[in-house]
C-alpha cells in the first residue's frame, strides 16, 4: 500500500497545540516584564523617600538565606577579606578578644573571693552563671573549682519512682564469683527457674549465676533444646 502523503501545515491539530504553548509562554513573559517594571517602581519610590536601593537589595538577598547560610557567608567574607588584607585583625583573635572580657572579669572575681575562704569550711558561689566552690587545701592555700550543681536526686523522679518501683528486697547471698556460679548450678538442680537469680542487676555475680545455671542445664535458659 502506498504511503499516504499527508501534508503537515498550519491547519493541523499538532500546530494548534504548539501555538497554544507558545502563546501561554509569551503571556507569562509579558507578565514577568511587567512585574520587573513594578519592582523597579517600588525601588524608585523607596529612593524618593531617602532609602538606598543597593542596601535594600542586599537585605532582600539575605532574607532569602537561612540563618546558618548567612553566618557561613559572613565567616567566609571575614576570612577572605582578612587574607586579602582588608582587615587589620584576624577573625579568631577578634573572637577571643570579645570572650576574654567576660573570662578575665570572672577570674578576678574568683581571685577576690579566695581571700574570704574560711580555714575550716568552704564557699560555693555563683559567678558568671557557673557555681564555683572555694576551699583551702591542707597547706592552707585557697583553691577554686567549678561545680556543676545537680540536685542529689532528680526532683522529677525521686519522689515518684521510689513508690512506683520499690526496690526488690532480695537477700543477696554472700559468696565469691565461683560461689555464684555454683549457686546457679544448684538452682537448676533444685528446679528453680533461671529468672530466680538472687543477685541485683548491677552485681557482676548475676552473670556468673546465670552462666552456672546454663552450664548445669546444658541449654540457654529458654526451655529444653530440641
Amino acid at each position: 500500500m502506498p504511503e499516504a502523503k499527508t501534508q503537515r501545515g498550519t491547519n493541523t491539530i499538532v500546530a494548534d497545540e504548539l501555538r497554544g504553548y507558545i502563546h501561554r509562554i509569551e503571556r507569562i513573559e509579558e507578565m514577568r516584564s511587567q512585574s520587573a517594571d513594578d519592582i523597579r517602581a517600588v525601588y524608585a519610590e523607596a529612593k524618593a523617600h531617602g532609602y538606598t536601593p543597593k542596601y535594600i537589595r542586599k537585605v532582600i538577598k539575605a532574607r532569602k538565606q537561612t540563618p546558618s547560610d548567612r553566618d557561613d557567608e559572613r565567616a567566609m567574607m571575614d576570612l577572605y577579606e582578612t587574607a586579602a588584607g582588608l582587615r587589620d585583625e584576624l577573625p579568631l583573635f577578634r573572637a577571643v578578644g570579645a570572650m576574654s572580657v567576660d573570662l578575665t572579669a570572672r577570674e578576678s572575681v574568683v581571685e577576690a573571693l579566695k581571700q574570704l575562704v574560711p580555714l575550716a569550711g568552704e564557699i560555693v558561689v555563683r559567678v558568671g552563671g557557673v557555681a564555683v566552690r572555694l576551699w583551702r587545701d591542707e597547706a592552707g592555700n585557697p583553691q577554686a573549682e567549678d561545680v556543676v550543681d545537680r540536685p542529689a536526686s532528680a526532683p522529677s523522679a525521686a519522689g515518684n519512682t521510689g513508690s512506683a518501683t520499690p526496690k526488690p528486697k532480695v537477700d543477696v547471698p554472700d559468696c565469691d564469683d565461683a560461689g555464684a556460679e555454683e549457686l546457679g548450678r544448684e538452682a537448676f538442680r533444685n528446679d528453680q527457674p533461671i529468672i530466680s537469680n538472687p543477685f541485683p542487676w548491677d552485681d557482676p555475680r548475676r552473670a556468673l549465676w546465670d552462666v552456672g545455671w546454663r552450664k548445669e542445664s546444658g541449654g540457654d535458659g529458654m526451655g529444653p533444646d530440641d
Binding site: 515518684n160 519512682t161 513508690s163 512506683a164 529468672i195 530466680s196 535458659g221
Partner: peptide, 19 residues
Amino acid sequence: PRDIASYGDLFDPKEAAEP
C-alpha cells in the same frame, strides 16, 4: 512530672515466663 508507672504497665522480673 509524672510517676514512671503512669506511662504504661510495669512488669516485675519475677513474673516473666519462659519464651
